[in-house]
């Protein structure tokens, strides 16, 4: 069985690369990357990943607008979205109310990121596909 696919949308190259390294090598996921909200919306519709990790603070189409775009599109509305932000406490409630599946704090620990994703999405007990 194919491993689960996670789309990471972040305008910062280093965060995209560390997330990819972590999710692939530690978590065993397949990872695809987008460097903006616009390209993330397009890639989400084309690739239909199992989950999306979305940075909140991005230029142009920020995380909130991207989340709204994902939820308004019937092709992507059901894909769980985890928000990545540095200001978790003040924003978590609002983000969850707007359809986010969970919120992760930056900076994340790359050795623990896959566990956190699994925990939020309830993938812990079902195991990742391919196991």
């Amino acid at each position: 069985m194919m491993p689960r696919t996670v789309l990471v949308i972040d305008d910062e190259r280093d965060i995209r690369e560390v997330a990819k390294t972590s999710l692939e090598l530690v978590g065993g996921f397949r990872v695809i990357l987008a460097d903006s909200g616009e390209s993330g919306l397009s890639l989400a519709q084309d690739a239909r990943p199992d989950a999306i990790i979305l940075d909140l603070m991005m230029p142009d189409l920020d995380g909130r607008k991207t989340l709204a775009g994902l939820k308004q599109n019937t092709l992507t509305a059901e894909i769980p979205v985890i928000i990545l932000t540095a200001k978790v406490q003040s924003e978590k409630h609002e983000l969850l109310a707007n359809g986010a599946a969970g919120v992760l704090v930056k900076p994340f620990n790359p050795m623990e990121l896959p566990d956190q994703v699994c925990e939020i999405l309830g993938w812990c007990h079902s195991k990742r596909r391919g196991e």
Partner: peptide, 11 residues
Amino acid sequence: AHRLSGSLGMF
């Protein structure tokens, strides 16, 4: 500063 704050901990 915001970007450094969000990334340095990963390393």
